[in-house]
Amino acid sequence: MPSPAVDDYLKSIYHHTEWQDRRITPKQLASVLGLAPSSVTEMVQKLAAQGLVSHEPYQPISLTAEGEQRAAAIIRRHRLIETWLVREFGYTWDEVHDEAEILEHALSDRLLEGIDTRLGHPRFDPHGDAIPDAAGHVHREPFVLLADARPGHAGRVLRVSDRDPEVLREVEDAGLTVGTEVRVDARGTVTIEGAAVPVTDAAASAVWLTA
Rank of each mutant, 00 (worst) to 15 (best):
T41V: 07
A186H: 12
E113M: 15
A106K: 13
L168F: 01
P142A: 12
S31V: 11
L119P: 04
A147E: 04
A211Y: 06
A48R: 09
R79Q: 10
Q59K: 15
L209T: 00
D173F: 07
H153F: 05
E82T: 05
T117P: 01
Q28H: 12
D94Q: 10
H16G: 04
D116I: 03
I192L: 08
E193P: 02
F143G: 11
T92F: 04
P4K: 07
R76Q: 02
D185V: 12
D7S: 09
Q20R: 12
P126Y: 04
H127K: 04
P151A: 01
Y91I: 13
A204F: 02
Q59G: 06
H127S: 11
I115E: 02
I13E: 07
L33Y: 05
D21S: 11
L63H: 08
A206D: 06
T180R: 13
P57M: 07
M43D: 02
E104S: 13
G152R: 00
A196F: 07
A130D: 03
A186Y: 05
P26I: 02
K11C: 09
W208P: 04
D201A: 14
M43E: 14
T92D: 10
K27D: 11
A206L: 05
A147P: 03
V199P: 03
L103C: 01
D173V: 09
D164L: 11
Q45E: 13
L111Q: 09
V160F: 01
L168I: 11
A186L: 13
P198F: 01
D164Q: 12
E56G: 13
H121G: 04
A196E: 05
Y91G: 09
T177W: 11
V32D: 09
P122S: 03
Q59A: 12
A100M: 01
G120R: 01
A202G: 09
H139F: 10
D125C: 14
A106L: 15
A5Q: 13
W208M: 12
Y58L: 13
A71P: 11
L47G: 00
P132N: 03
I24T: 04
D109R: 08
I131G: 06
K27P: 06
G51Y: 01
W93V: 15
V171D: 04
H55Y: 15
L107K: 01
V6K: 15
Q45R: 10
G136H: 08
P126T: 06
S31Q: 14
A135W: 09
A73P: 09
L176I: 02
Q28R: 15
G51F: 02
E66N: 10
A195C: 12
L176H: 08
E66C: 07
T191E: 00
Y91H: 06
E101L: 08
R77E: 05
I81S: 04
A49E: 14
A186K: 12
H97P: 00
G67T: 12
G188H: 07
I192K: 10
V40T: 08
M1F: 14
W19C: 06
Q50L: 15
I74T: 14
L80I: 05
A49F: 01
I75S: 08
R110A: 14
A130G: 01
H55I: 07
V182R: 00
G155S: 01
V190F: 02
A147Q: 10
Q28L: 13
E166P: 07
E193C: 02
V86P: 09
Y58H: 14
T64W: 03
G175F: 11
G155K: 00
V32I: 11
A5M: 10
T83N: 07
D148L: 14
A71N: 03
T191Q: 00
G188V: 05
T83E: 09
